[in-house]
Amino acid sequence: MKREDFTKNEVSSSKWQIKFKQIQHICRALIIHRSFYVSRPSLLLSSLFVTGIMACSDPFQYNPNQVILDKNQQDLNAKNIARIQKRIPSDTVRFILMGDSQRFYDELADFVESANQQRDISFVLHAGDISDFGLTQEFKWVHEIMQDLRVPYLTVLGNHDLIANASTAYRKMYGDFNYSFEFGTNKFIFINTNSREFNFDGTVPDLPWLKQELANNPLQNNAFVIAHIPPFDADFDPKLEKEYAEILAADPHVNLTLYGHQHTFRNGTFYNDGVEYYLTTSMQDRGYLLITTWKGGYLVDRIKF
């Protein structure tokens, strides 16, 4: 067909305008040259192919478990940390904790709208279960919606983000399962606590890594440990629960630790050790936590949207 001519002549037009013109052209050709096509049916079919290809935005998929990502869909956590750290922090840092976006895209879009109305937010933390079925396609949909946020977002790994090829996709798209960064007088530590996905083999969560990260805090910043599954949940390795809680309690800079997974708001000092555990709810439940922190203190608000 004459696809090339169109793309050459109308480089300035938007992609969709070009597509529309192409479809229009094909339809017109089909009507005018009906007799032509009847004698050359392969042409009819090829024009149907072209129309079909243009109707889909991402027409060809090779496997539900394929991990095909554009450059700008890769290494997002590192890129977003760089964006966050470019800004000069004030004494008070405010951020959002949301999570469990799994298969709730309509609600996630409403969340973005609500989050964009909050004032003085530095970033959004996704508490995990970005995807539901562990498909790369789901990560892409979530990223597309989250890109409308006015601030960068960071993620922690959820149990659903380990299903099938999701662990490969997560690594490629977001980065390491355990990582940390500092902003203002705060250190944020993200850790994989999805023990059941690793058959409770004693390696998840990686407690030596956690200890090391907490120890490496020379400026004595507030330390926030963020994970998907809270230690008192049945999906957290019961052999590691006590030690995990003790590590947090032993560090004087850990006052608040953040989770998702249970699809409901919860908070409390569950181990009576001074560390307050906060769980955010799912997108389906249309809620998130708004957290304000300053040196030695914090405030947590539950927001419904």
Binding site: A55, S57, Y105, A109
Partner: peptide, 27 residues
Amino acid sequence: IGSYDLLLISYIQNRKILRLSDVTNLA
């Protein structure tokens, strides 16, 4: 033009955000 179970479920539950072209593909 086809789709599979997991994408169709996602589409049915998110009619505001997802279009049919998001969950179908060509062979």
